[in-house]
Amino acid sequence: MPEVKILEEVCKGCGLCCDNVCPENILILTPDRINSNGYHPAMVTDMKKCTGCGYCFKICPEPAIEIYK
């Protein structure tokens, strides 16, 4: 079962990974959390659906995403 880890302090909340990137559409920007740089980091809404395809990682400029399997 793959697992996505968002490095919340590295994420700049650009939202590239949240827009038509995830085939399962399980990434959103956190509405209620702000990191120390003032960004709303991305988060996974339903980890069980993740297939570990890595698309979110590939589009992430930082990279603030790690995927484990």
Binding site: G54, F57, I65, E66, K69
Partner: peptide, 8 residues
């Protein structure tokens, strides 16, 4: 678990 994607 092993990291398959991450900071190189």
């Amino acid at each position: 678990m092993k990291m398959i994607f991450g900071r190189p």
